[in-house]
């Protein structure tokens, strides 16, 4: 099998909107693949189609070599899913939730018991396993859901916003579990997120999705390199010199892009840290005094801005409320 997941022009139209439009992606076995996009981009819709929860209205997709439309039961047997909103039975204990899951996936009793202990210890919930889920914190709930998604040794694990609304420390923890899973158990993972750092930190490759379409797809490094390199900002003592300095850099050819604004000159270079001394030397040779220098390494934010013309953060207005709502729903 060449790909763990392969889609061809997969599309989902709801009554008025096209939530996912003609998406073709391939994910290799063992890959940790990210879908990065703002609220409403179509991330959940896409993985719901891949996990057979909803039917595509167009195109096709294979997961672990099974067609999501024609062979849904086989797809289901091979995947694990952690939904965006909690799907635990909060009147039961953590262990009971895992046990029911194992039974639904037809695991025999011995195997089930052993696996429950394994996944509990992976997410460090062994001591709280016999408490009712209602009494768990948001982070514990999420960890239990990840553990449950892994119970039946899925080949492909879908994580829909695994760290939404969690504090930074819990988030770091969950990142570690995700990495361990991917490395040690060799699980292919597809996760959605709208946190740049998360995608950057975890994923081998990232698809940036906006309005239901993939606008860029590559490794985080390559995506950032597409922007041409790091940006050095030089603030001049005297704006009169600004044109002359720009000319110098352009002639020298050390920068791929040179631009200016007020007192500042922006130069885009590869390997910014190493270029700073050279850039400063050129200025001092020309006798142009510099007040300050700063270096900006491109982030996925810049990449997103570049491809969509918007900052992902613009779309996040009201997120605090949303997170509050989700936590409340989780706690209920």
């Amino acid at each position: 099998m060449l790909y763990a997941i392969e889609t061809e022009g997969i599309t989902k139209k709801f009554d008025e909107i096209t939530a996912v439009n003609n998406v073709s992606i391939s994910v290799k076995p063992g890959e940790l693949f990210g879908l990065l996009g703002p609220n409403g981009a179509g991330k959940t819709t896409l993985i719901n189609m891949l996990s057979t929860m909803i039917e595509p209205t167009g195109g096709s997709a294979k997961v672990w070599d099974f067609d999501v439309k024609k062979d849904a039961p086989h797809v289901r047997q091979n995947i694990g899913m952690v939904f965006q909103d909690t799907t635990l039975d909060d009147r039961l204990t953590g262990r009971e939730n895992l046990d029911l899951h194992g039974r639904l996936y037809d695991m025999d009793s011995k195997h089930r018991k052993k696996r429950i202990e394994e996944v509990l210890s992976l997410v460090e919930l062994t001591d709280r396993a016999n408490a009712i889920v209602k009494t768990y914190s948001g982070g514990m709930t999420r960890r239990l859901e990840i553990a449950r998604g892994l119970m039946h040794h899925p080949h492909v694990l879908f994580l829909d916003e695994p760290t939404l609304g969690l504090d930074p420390q819990t988030r770091n923890h969950i990142w570690e579990y995700i990495k361990v899973l991917n490395k040690e158990e060799g699980v292919t993972i597809v996760l959605t997120t709208h946190y740049m750092e998360e995608a950057d930190h975890l994923c081998h490759r990232i698809a940036i999705i906006d309005h239901g379409e993939i606008v860029a797809l590559d490794t985080p490094e390559a995506l950032k390199n597409m922007l041409g390199g790091d940006v050095i900002t030089l603030e001049l003592e005297n704006p009169d010199n600004i044109s002359r300095l720009c000319e110098i850099y352009k002639e020298n050819g050390c920068a791929s892009i040179v631009s200016r604004k007020n007192n500042d000159v922006f130069i885009t270079v590869r390997d910014g840290e190493r270029q700073i001394p050279h850039v400063l030397e050129l200025a001092s040779d020309a006798g142009i005094p510099i007040r300050s220098v700063s270096l900006h390494k491109p982030t996925l934010d810049d990449v997103f801005l570049h491809f969509t013309g918007r900052a992902i953060r613009d779309k996040e207005a009201g997120e605090t409320e949303r997170v509050g709502y989700i936590l409340r729903a989780r706690r209920k």
């Binding site: 929860m53 086989h74 289901r76 639904l104 996936y105």
Partner: peptide
């Protein structure tokens, strides 16, 4: 409403 139904419906049963 509380989501558990999804857990059942995504299982291969």
């Amino acid at each position: 409403e509380f989501g558990f139904l999804k857990e059942i419906l995504i299982a291969p049963v």
